[in-house]
């Protein structure tokens, strides 16, 4: 069977199915704040972030969770209806510099193949450290 651009029967555990880098800027954070309704100022004001002991403005965890699954959806042919379950643990902040922004890398690998479809495991890194733990996407392949 074929879904998107791949042949599900030729998939193996460990295959990298998608890989994508995302460049975030402060604009990305303001845009996400407006779209999601999460206006916590630690996501757009340095003084608010440093006043609670953070090194600076950080991305919303839900923004990182939001884009980290997009390479998998592209691999599924753009149909997010094939995502059955998606979970993450927020383990490290993504600091977004006012000038340089932040670069976040996503690698999506097949973790499990079974009757229900596949579990895709995401490795999401910023400055060479993972920022999400147990980031798993359950997808239907039929």
């Amino acid at each position: 069977m074929s879904v998107g651009g791949f042949d599900a029967e030729k998939l193996s555990v460990g295959d990298i199915v998608a890989e994508q880098s995302y460049h975030l800027t402060r604009d990305s954070l303001v845009r996400y704040a407006g779209a999601s309704g999460d206006f916590n100022p630690i996501h757009y004001r340095d003084d608010a972030a440093t006043s609670v002991g953070l090194a600076g403005v950080l991305a919303h965890g839900m923004l990182t969770m939001g884009f980290a699954v997009q390479p998998v959806i592209d691999w599924l042919g753009g149909d997010s209806g094939k995502v059955l379950d998606y979970q993450v643990r927020f383990t490290r902040p993504v600091f977004v510099d006012a000038e340089a922004g932040a670069d976040v890398n996503v690698v999506a690998k097949v973790g499990v193949l079974d009757q229900a479809g596949a579990r895709i495991d995401l490795t999401v890194t910023f400055r060479d450290e993972t920022v999400l733990g147990k980031a798993q996407v359950r997808v239907a392949l039929a």
Partner: peptide, 27 residues
């Protein structure tokens, strides 16, 4: 805002062609 690119998120015609009533929200 979540850097989605699928036409199903933006274009009602593409969403309908895939069997949905209207544009599909990201997970």
């Amino acid at each position: 805002a979540v850097l989605a690119t699928s036409p199903l998120n933006f274009d009602p015609e593409a969403a309908r062609a895939a069997g949905y009533a209207d544009v599909v929200a990201p997970p």
